[in-house]
Design a protein around this nucleic acid. Structure first.
Lengths: 112, 112
DNA sequence: TTTGATGCATAAGAAAATTAGGTATATTTG
DNA sequence: CAAATATACCTAATTTTCTTATGCATCAAA
């Protein structure tokens, strides 16, 4: 279930971003959505996802709601107020990181 | 010596990229160059840098040459042939990773 | 009926950082 | 002159964050 090795540290940001879109989501749904959005490039492993979700919940960024659908359990997660704020921060941080990396990979001569 | 926290996994790629520019470099020089190129955004810690350099050397991607300048030791690193190839691969991988992340952070509606 | 998809979970291990030291020389600054 | 800062290397302990490998359960499809 894995592929890209470089996304270390960005998983929680990805989760927060998806949930900031509006709707609550459950774990499996997140893996499938990311897979689809990235054309299969990024396959989030369950061993990474569930601990990450639990940590975000423990940190007060997510609320959980358990539902039974088709006789199967789903744990729906949504952002708390704190989570909404944090998603904005994390997104900005990730975007700044990308710009920073771009500054190295594709530098402007004046700074190289 | 640290600041931006999201670059896990990209350090060796950064090192290879800088050395692919042409000139040999020594460790301290790399930290200073990255700091300058990123306007202080990315400060590579020595605890990360030196083990990374040693691993790249052990993997046959870098060659070392020790010099004494102003009565201080410098270990100059340069790419081996293998390292040159690997730098190209790693760079491409990093760029694909960035595109993938962009696809999530700034998705096209058709895939969202 | 057995494989694959859906849906959750955890434990052991690896990778890659941070943090916090250590050593030494040279320069700057109060 | 003494102390702080910059230059230059290093490593060990710890933490974070994954991967890999499981386990359990339901349901659909082959």
């Amino acid at each position: 279930m894995s592929n890209a090795k470089l996304y270390k540290g960005s998983l929680s940001t990805i989760i927060l971003k998806l949930l900031a879109e509006g709707d609550k989501m459950y774990g499996y749904e997140i893996t499938q959505k990311v897979k689809k959005m990235t054309q299969g490039e990024l396959k989030i492993t369950e061993g990474a996802l569930y601990p990450a979700l639990h940590k975000l919940e423990a940190d007060g960024l997510l609320d959980v709601e358990v539902k039974k659908v088709d006789n199967r359990l789903r744990k729906y997660y949504k952002l708390t107020e704190k989570g909404t704020k944090e998603s904005i921060n994390k997104l900005a941080e990730l975007e700044r990181f990308i710009e920073t990396i771009q500054g190295i990979v594709n530098p402007k001569p004046s700074l190289g």
